[in-house]
Design a binder for these strands. Structure first.
Length: 715
DNA sequence: ATTCAACGCTTTTTT
DNA sequence: AGCGTTGAAT
């Protein structure tokens, strides 16, 4: 039998072996927390006789859940399959599918993604005659999401807020809720909120799940929100065998409602909690670790701690100054080449950035250089228009109440049925209290429709009947998908377009069919509903393939939990990283944690880059290096101007170091710029380092010292 | 009533 | 660079 603890260090061993009861593991980056988690579960199963199905293990991604199950199978054998290992959202769906009626939903409820949510919300704007320009829908949705993550109903929110904007939010939230229910739809926040309502509000249901889960374990606990916290709390009673693992330095989701206070609250709720700190890092070189420590220790709101390693210092961190984003991309390519020449595999290289848009230039360069790479995140496969179009047919098949999908389905391909027609149909459906799909079958009875529209609706209804028949007969998902593609005319419409774009979309749809077939072969109990559900809960991070032999490009958010031999972080510029929108002290600390997460992903080599100018919404911005660069210990860093192009005439340094004298520019001065021509200074920022200049076409912010620009007249 | 083309505005991070 | 809205053409 495998020895579960001999390879562990003392605190790790303690965390694995400690008796039941609440356990808080404060696990620094790279300190082996996944190992602790899996070994503890294995220990519970093997040594303490806990049945695998009595353990609920919450991970941050579906992929991590799968890996945990696999590792566990290696430790305790196939019994591990009975373990509930999943994300919060997947676990909630699993519970809600069984108990839907308890919270006023049908079992076949649909999960609405952000695009769906916006459609529902926009409909509410119409109904309530709210102007979307005055109340940005995305912002309102954000407020609703925030309320739900704190388990606030519209009434609860109303009690808490007041004011013109907030009153409207409450009003919209209330209507949004009604409409969601009408659609049989739940948004991501509902999955959590309704599960908490269910468990807290229905003693019989609660007891069932409490009895079932003897042990509850949560990874990445610092990124849980209030709803998740309450979920853990209610499931953990009465045994209180709750283990949470987290690191306050790695909390990067507060904008999504995550609350680091959950860690503090844990000790308050469970005063008897056992606390274990894992501070030995097994991942990174000494240099990387000390740099990461130096950066994160600038944050005020954190538990003081210091990760240590007994590894060598390794190589210095390479810091490259690039002229623009193209040079930065070439630097990335050159560094990849260098690493590969040294015998490293492409798979061991990760390139991180703050925003998805940054991947584009790098991709272009890598394609040109023939470097194999994968991009995680960005425009998502399942959110492409053509995919959503055909999925709308499947979603209505699975849930006839889903009016959002119905409207989408009716509109694509074009069949002469637009919003006006759908509105009439909805009116009719509402009068009779029947789903839109059924109303469509009776199109002949709906007033004020054109004959062609009646025909189109009838045909649609027939298609839906056919799809539903296939589904009920247990047809394979890829077969139902094919039937939708052909029956809807979606495929024919694209084929008829004969454009490159249409060709690409057809290929996308073929890919979807392949994915459906793959699902069909892989799923334990394949069904249309579970296929749609898997798609809805599919996360970008689930797609990371560390064995693909390719370089991985992704946002730092997606890099959480991963590690690479070589890590490059690009775009380290003020207003990009830290992002301009993170302008409060707290938000800035979160940006710093994000940087910390990025740094600590690296095992051996770290390359950091910033560009002096970057193309941004049409124009070109001139930028200062990120303040975070100045926070790196000087002895850990080797700075270089990218050697890939001729150095600019002016050089400048970052952070607290020497600063070149900028031309003395004042508001009102006239300047001549090499590229933009004549302009006038409209503002001076950051102690004269940056100037705002209005040119004939636009106002730009330039770095006073290095922009190719001279003063032509005093203001 | 639908559809299409132009315009103006905004873009962090994601389950 | 993309999206949503607006206005015009069918």
């Amino acid at each position: 039998m495998l020895d579960l603890v001999s390879a562990l260090n003392p605190p790790q061993r303690e965390a694995v072996l400690v008796e039941g009861g609440p356990l808080l593991v404060l696990a620094g980056a790279g300190s082996g927390k996944t190992r602790v988690l899996t070994h503890r579960i294995a220990h519970l199963i093997r040594e303490r006789g806990v049945p695998p199905e009595a353990i609920l293990a919450i991970t941050f991604t579906n992929k991590a859940a799968g890996e945990m199950r696999e590792r566990l199978a290696g430790l305790v054998g196939p019994a591990a399959r009975a373990l509930w290992a999943s994300t919060f959202h997947s676990a909630c769906v699993r519970i809600l599918r069984r108990e839907a009626h308890e919270v006023g939903y049908e079992r076949d409820f649909t999960i609405f993604d952000q695009a769906d949510q916006l459609r529902v919300l926009r409909a509410c704007y119409e109904e309530l005659s709210v102007d979307p320009k005055r109340f940005a829908p995305r912002a309102v949705l954000g407020r609703i999401s925030d309320a739900k993550s704190r388990l606030l109903t519209p009434d609860g929110l109303a009690d808490e807020v007041s004011g013109f904007f907030d009153d409207k939010v409450v009003e919209l939230y209330r209507r949004y809720e009604d409409r969601l229910r009408l659609n049989g739809g739940m948004d991501f926040d509902d999955l959590l909120m309704l599960t908490v309502e269910l468990l807290e509000g229905r003693p019989a249901v609660r007891e069932r799940y409490q009895q079932r889960f003897e042990h509850v374990m949560v990874d990445e606990y610092q990124d849980t929100n209030h709803a998740q916290y309450r979920l853990v709390r209610v499931l953990g009673e009465p045994q209180r065998n709750v283990m949470v693992v987290g690191d306050d330095d790695q909390g990067i989701y507060s904008w999504r409602g995550a609350d680091i206070r959950n860690i503090l609250d844990f000790e308050r709720d469970y005063p008897e909690a056992h606390v274990v700190a894992l501070e030995q890092n097994y991942r990174s070189t000494g240099t990387i670790l000390s740099a990461a420590n130096a950066v994160v220790s600038r944050n005020r709101g954190r538990h003081p701690k210091r990760l240590w390693t007994d590894r060598d210092d390794g190589e210095p961190i390479l810091l490259a100054t690039c002229r623009d984003e193209h040079e930065e991309a070439r630097l990335v390519a050159a560094q990849i080449r260098r690493a590969v020449d040294e015998g490293r595999s492409h798979a061991e290289i990760g390139v991180f950035y703050r925003t998805n848009a940054q991947s584009r230039v790098i991709e272009d360069t890598l394609v040109r250089d023939g470097v194999p790479y994968q991009v995680v995140g960005g425009p998502r496969f399942y959110e492409r228009a053509e995919v959503k179009d055909v999925l709308a047919y499947l979603r209505v098949t699975a849930n006839p109440a889903d009016a959002v999908s119905f409207a989408r389905m009716v509109g694509t391909p074009k069949r002469g049925v637009g919003p006006g027609c759908v509105a009439r149909l909805s009116w009719y459906a509402e009068q009779l209290g029947i789903p839109l799909a059924d109303a469509a079958a009776q199109a002949d009875l709906v007033p004020d429709l054109r004959p062609a529209q009646r025909t189109a609706l009838r045909e649609l209804a027939e298609l839906l009947t056919e799809l539903r028949r296939l589904d009920e007969a247990g047809a394979a998902v890829d077969r139902i998908l094919e039937a939708a593609l052909d029956g809807s005319g979606l495929r024919a419409a694209l084929a008829g377009e004969r454009t490159i774009e249409a060709q690409g979309r057809l290929e996308t749809l073929d890919e979807l069919v392949v994915l459906a077939a793959e699902y069909q072969g892989r799923a334990e109990e394949p069904s249309l509903r579970s296929f749609l559900e898997e798609i809805s809960l599919y996360a970008d991070a689930d797609a990371v393939d560390q064995e693909s032999g390719r370089v991985t490009l992704m946002t730092i958010h997606n890099a959480k939990g991963l590690e690479f031999d070589v890590v490059m972080i690009v775009g380290l510029e003020e207003s990009l990283f830290p992002h301009a929108r993170s302008d409060t002290p707290d938000a800035l600390e979160e940006e710093r944690r994000l940087f910390y997460v990025g740094l600590t992903r690296a095992r051996a080599r770290l390359v950091l880059a910033h560009a002096q100018s970057r193309a941004m919404h049409g124009g070109r911005d001139y930028r200062l290096p990120s303040r975070f660069l100045a926070e790196l210990p000087a002895e850990a860093v080797e700075a270089t101007r990218s050697t890939l192009s001729t150095p600019a005439e002016t050089s400048w340094s970052w952070g607290s170091g020497a600063r070149r004298g900028a031309p003395d520019l004042q508001t009102g001065d006239s300047v001549m710029h090499a590229t933009f021509g004549e302009g006038v200074i409209t503002g001076v920022e950051q102690g004269g380092e940056l100037v705002r200049v209005r040119f004939s076409d636009a106002e730009r912010r330039l770095i006073a010292a290095s922009a190719p620009m001279r003063k032509v007249a005093e203001g």
